[in-house]
Amino acid sequence: MSSLAVSDEHAAPASSTTRVIQPAWVRIVHWVNAVAMILMIMSGWQIYNASPLFNFTFSRSITLGGWLGGALLWHFAAMWLLMVNGLVYLVLGFVTGRFRRKLLPITPAGVISDTKAALTFKLSHKDLAKYNYVQKLLYAGIIVVGVLIVLSGLSIWKPVQLQWLTALFGGYDVARYVHFICMALIVAFLVVHVALAILVPRSLRAMIIGR
């Protein structure tokens, strides 16, 4: 990965076919996040099974940790990877202006027309560097969900030391539901995200080699 980063810096942005769509830092935090997120979700399902909020449990074949204690160890280890990587992403996203450039503005009219275009398969993917309004909305939205799942997780972990945060979520029991709903939203996002990456393989390539 580091060799890729170096070659990116030296590559001249000559023609449009070789220009960098996803800079190295985005690719690195993206894949670290992917690993951290999958570890968190799979161990989280095992933790959920110890005291289910709803009338179902997750099959043990898709959980991580083997039992509650093992899952907690994974969850509280992967959380550092998720949080540190997430912070790097947020800081760089703001500092480099990427969020402003890529995700804003989001207008209701733009979202509606791009949603229509997407549903009738008329949405263009010619320029992968430019997000359409549906992408803007989903990517901005999933960042907000990402922040919420970390904060609700912290409020479940530390309902005494961070009781102001827990209170903000409506108390310990409500925070558990918020945490679960955020997970469900991320999994739903993941399904769409992966499906679209398969439909437009150039986008997957850009997230791996940058162009």
Partner: peptide, 27 residues
Amino acid sequence: AVKLMPDLTRRRFITGGASLGALALLT
């Protein structure tokens, strides 16, 4: 994905994929 790529990027893609696998191992 590889089928859709020009030669140069194809090689890079495979290298990238390999280091992704290494990342999964490390984590």
